[in-house]
Design a protein around this nucleic acid. Structure first.
Length: 598
RNA sequence: GGGGACGUAGUUCAGCUGGUUAGAACGCAUGCCUGUCACGCAUGAGGCCGCGGGUUCGAGUCCCGUCGUCCCCGCCA
């Protein structure tokens, strides 16, 4: 080994020992007579001292020539720092290493951006950080993220093993299944004109593994989706993918609660309470206006449909007459809202098809609003009571069809929470994690444009047993055995109990989703075939691993927890991929390029 | 596919209503400095103002286009 200790290891107890450290020159303080070099490695940093009075001249010369991020090996004796020169900011701050030997393992050119100062480095343009990712990852903040990710992955594997799961790898060269997300295609050299697709998830393989009798499967699976990127979406990402046989929904809830509890304990030393609360889809929408509610704060949606059924304010009573609802929320302490903020909220409402956004500011003991003059005393009393209206409040309304009204106010609720947070009027503590299950999703949604039903989750999701009969008569009412796990308003993952009866699956494909039998056979034939030979009842879930790590690390972007992420246009700035390929490569793959627009 | 923000020194930014030689801090180079840890002090180098076009006597600044990064909508069964 080139070193005896790492750079976060030496303490007062090591005094007098001769040690060898290796690492990067984190910072150098040349006082003319004496030089301090902080040597940094993965674990931390240690101050080394070069004192000319007991060093050969050439060694001192070489020490003074060192610059930031040179790689060095330093041999020296550990000693306590002189009285009053301890550095309480670092764990090795009580000691220093009096250097007697110095070896420059590798010089470093002047850096494109600083890695030693978290203040500055944290603000550096992300473009530059991605281009020089290896420098970015040297920063302690990024190194910590990588370490946390590794810990969480290991905790997952240990836990799943303890629970009797087998980690099984599935192919990444898969078959194109033109459902759902757009796929990345891989041309086959050996089969001219044919293509593999990279899997959006191992969904079908994991169900087949249940037919194969694996019973308990898991995998940290790489998945690929050729869709537009976001802060929380990359074209390749990792899922904790799980499938189990002979289970019910409760078994999944139990398992995942245990897994998340373990991960949070190992990664953050936090004990998260279980079981998680359960919220039906209906209730989530009704109270929070979204199927992944942030329940760290209240500001719930309140229904006023009955109160305004006969209102003189036609916008409200008209909406009710049209089978809609009137909902409101109270943004406490937001009466001082700016016109710009109101405009932004109104724009949100409009994007959902609303004509506008009604509101009341409660200021100076008055209800300030263009609509309040239409309200009866009874209506005002009802608002006051059910919304607990006080001085300084802002009341916002939506009068639309139920789902639309709820979704509008759901967006407005989050918008208001952000504003109140920035004003310090609402706290969402960094170490608070509100986990919950959202359940009883509708199995199907209706596509107005294509005039057909499609699966809310995926076509293998089992209907609730008591709703199977409704499949052919009233599809809208069929609830799926689907569940999402949500934390702090972020969808962490979701899954379902699957259909294991071939006849029910056939009904869903052919009669509900209206997929022609020959197409079903082409796409899912092997799966339906497999299910004929004794498929156990089964179900599973997938958790977004990158998102999970981002939550643990407290960062909004999963790029911060992926070693080498892609930009919003799906490129890698370090390797400059994607890139053109040679004509020969294309010929081998039987691929011809169309002339590119110039 | 659509909307928005940004692009000036190696880095982070300032640059007013279009007007002389484009500034600051940090970094870098050189020198001084024996207890610093954001070391200090002095001197200095460093700019295709993303790129292309236009308006103008004159453009970092205004207009159009384009490229890149980020955020959002659509999309993500």
């Amino acid at each position: 080994m080139k070193r005896t200790h790492h750079c976060n290891e030496l303490r007062a107890a090591h005094e007098g020992q001769t040690v060898t450290l290796a690492g990067w020159v984190h910072s150098r303080r040349d006082l003319g007579g004496v030089i301090f070099i902080d040597v940094r490695d993965r674990e931390g940093r240690t101050q080394t001292v070069f004192d000319p009075s007991d060093l050969p001249a050439d060694l001192f010369e070489r020490a003074s020539a060192l610059r930031s991020e040179c790689v060095v090996k330093v041999v020296g004796k550990v000693r306590l720092r002189p009285e009053g020169t301890n550095n309480p900011k670092i764990p090795t701050g009580e000691i220093e290493v009096a250097a007697s030997q110095l070896e420059l393992l590798n010089a470093a050119a002047v850096l494109p951006f600083p890695v030693d100062d978290p203040e500055v480095a944290g603000k550096v343009n992300e473009e530059l950080r991605l281009k020089y990712r290896y420098l970015d990852l040297r920063r302690p903040e990024m190194a910590r993220n990588l370490r946390l990710r590794s810990k969480a992955a290991t905790a997952t594997r240990l836990f799943m093993d303890e629970q009797g799961f087998l980690e099984v790898e599935t192919p990444t060269l898969f078959k194109s299944t033109p459902e759902g997300a757009r796929e990345f295609l891989v041309p086959s050299r050996l089969n001219a004109g044919q293509f593999y697709a990279l899997p959006q998830s191992p969904q079908q393989f994991k169900q087949i593994l249940m037919v194969a009798g694996v019973e308990k499967y898991f995998q940290l699976a790489r998945c690929y989706r050729d869709e537009d990127l976001r802060a929380d979406r990359q074209p390749e990402f990792t899922q904790i993918d799980i499938e189990m046989s002979f289970i019910e929904r409760e078994d999944i809830y139990n398992l995942i609660e245990g897994l998340l509890q373990r991960i949070w304990k190992v990664a953050l030393d936090l004990d998260i309470p279980t079981p998680f609360r359960r919220l039906s889809f209906q209730e989530a929408i009704d109270r929070y206006g979204i199927d992944k509610p942030d329940t760290r704060f209240e500001m719930e949606l309140v229904d006023f449909t009955e109160e305004f059924r006969g209102s003189a304010f036609k916008v409200f009573s008209g909406a009710v007459a049209n089978h809609g609802v009137v909902k409101a929320l109270n943004a406490k302490g937001m009466a001082g809202v700016t016109q710009g903020q109101v405009d932004a909220m109104t724009e949100t409402a409009r994007s959902f098809g609303a004509k506008g956004l009604a509101y009341i500011k409660v200021e100076g003991g008055e209800w300030k609003s263009p609509i309040v003059k239409f309200f009866s005393q009874a209506e005002k009393d009802a608002l006051s009571k059910k919304l607990d209206v006080e001085e300084g409040d802002l009341i916002l309304f939506a009068a639309e069809q139920w789902l639309t009204a709820c979704e509008i106010l759901g967006k407005v609720r989050l918008f208001c929470a952000d504003i109140l947070s920035s004003q310090g009027k609402l706290s969402r503590a960094a170490n608070r994690f509100d986990f919950l299950w959202v359940v009883d999703f509708p199995l199907l949604s209706f596509d107005k444009e294509q005039n057909r039903w499609y699966s809310s989750h995926h076509p293998f999701t089992a209907p609730m047993a008591e709703d199977i009969a409704l499949l052919k008569t009233d599809p809208r009412k069929v609830r799926g055995q689907h569940y999402d796990v949500v934390v702090n308003g972020i969808e962490l993952g979701g899954g379902s109990i699957r259909i294991h009866q071939p006849d029910v699956q056939k009904t869903v494909f052919e009669e509900v989703l209206q997929i022609p039998p020959e197409e079903t056979k082409l796409r899912f034939g092997y799966m339906l075939e497999a299910f004929r030979y004794g498929a156990p009842p089964h179900g599973g879930i997938a958790l977004g691993f990158d998102r999970l790590i981002a939550i643990l690390c407290g960062t909004p972007s999963i790029r911060d927890v992926i070693a080498f992420p892609k930009t919003a246009k799906g490129t890698c700035l370090m390797t400059e991929s994607p890139s053109p390929v040679s004509p020969k490569q294309l010929r081998d793959l039987h691929v011809e390029l169309k002339a590119m627009k110039r």
